[in-house]
């Protein structure tokens, strides 16, 4: 496992708690690392991390883990760099080239180098899975690729960013201004000190790019997304919408036939299934056979993201491990 922040620790905690027949043989954070062929004692690493800020010995790097540890799957959970995708791109590529499967929550590599990485995975007969990159705990990728196999996905849209959804919920409920709601979101730990990435719709746009490329092979980049954030919204606008049993949500939308990817605040009926409250995410999938499917769940969080990573790990174990 490379990356031992909130997501990495969440995965480790869940594995320590539940077993699941998963052994962790190497962990690296940004400053240290630990390797064990027979399996790391996860609880002691978690304690060490909590007490010292380090998961292992200084001097053991992600490169050491990639090259020296014994692993079937690399779990890449370093923070997203939406511009370069590094260091995750390099980490993922190296693991794939060594013939290891990769599971990641890092949006950078999947949004920027999807087709290249998938080609490398295929050449090496391994899997690259990324359920955790879109909508946290919601099994969206699995639903689209396995659950709805054979369906034509005509349209996909919904709430892809919990921070924006929280802000809009509070503006509508309490008549808060955008600034007030943003400050509150920060205090609650839902918004970063620099909220640009969330409130200008960049995070949601990256998720659309990942979906467009993974589900439809559209070869899109962030520049292809028609994007408007929520930072110019007024409490008056919310009040105008609410007067008629409508509300405003930041909606990400993919119209695959027209090749349209769009993130923008939209007016929706309050009882529309994707109008969720607080930090929840919601996705509506319109298909030809299954009709409409709505998925609602937590889009972020340590254990929630761990759920997505672990489901990918177990999917690889059950359907791919040992085949090559």
């Amino acid at each position: 496992m490379i990356g031992f922040g909130s997501v990495g620790r969440g995965i480790a905690e869940c594995i320590a708690e539940k077993g699941l027949d998963i052994e962790i043989t190497g962990i690296a954070d940004s400053r240290s690392g630990v390797i064990s062929k027979t399996g790391i004692d996860i609880r002691s690493v978690l304690t060490k991390k909590q007490e010292t800020g380090l998961c292992g010995e200084e001097g053991i790097t992600p490169e050491d883990i990639l090259e020296r540890a014994e692993y079937d799957v690399l779990v890449e959970v370093t923070p997203t760099d939406a511009v370069t995708g590094e260091p995750a791109c390099t980490n993922i590529q190296r693991a794939l080239e060594k013939g290891a499967h990769v599971v990641t929550s890092n949006k950078g590599p999947i949004a920027l180098k999807f087709s290249e990485l998938m080609r490398i995975a295929e050449e090496n007969g391994v899997q690259l899975r990324y359920e955790a990159t879109v909508c946290g705990a919601i099994p969206l990728m699995h639903t689209l690729r396995q659950g709805l196999a054979g369906n034509t996905i005509q349209k996909l849209y919904g709430v892809f960013n919990g921070t924006c959804n929280y802000i809009l919920t509070r503006m509508a409920d309490e008549g808060l201004t955008y600034q007030q709601a943003l400050l509150e979101a920060r205090e609650m730990g839902y918004a970063e000190a620099d909220p640009t990435y969330d409130v200008q719709g960049i995070d949601a746009a990256i998720k659309l790019v990942i979906l467009a490329n993974a589900v439809w092979g559209l070869n899109k980049t962030l520049d292809d997304v028609d994007r408007t954030g929520i930072d110019l919204l007024t409490s008056d606008a919310l009040a105008l919408a609410e007067r008629e049993e409508h509300t405003i949500r930041l909606i990400g939308e993919i119209l695959p036939d027209e090749g349209v990817l769009r993130v923008s605040p939209r007016i929706l009926n309050k009882n529309h299934p994707v109008v969720v409250r607080g930090t929840l995410n919601a996705v509506m999938i319109e298909t030809d056979m299954a009709g409409e499917i709505t998925l609602i769940g937590k889009g972020a969080g340590s254990r929630e993201t761990a759920s997505a990573i672990i489901s990918d790990l177990l999917f690889i174990r059950d359907f791919h491990a040992g085949r090559s």
């Binding site: 919204l233 409508h246 405003i248 939308e253 605040p265 939209r266 007016i267 929706l268």
Partner: peptide, 10 residues
């Protein structure tokens, strides 16, 4: 001017 458009439903 920012326009907020309605979401077209099926």
């Amino acid at each position: 001017i920012l326009i907020i458009e309605p979401l077209e439903e099926k």
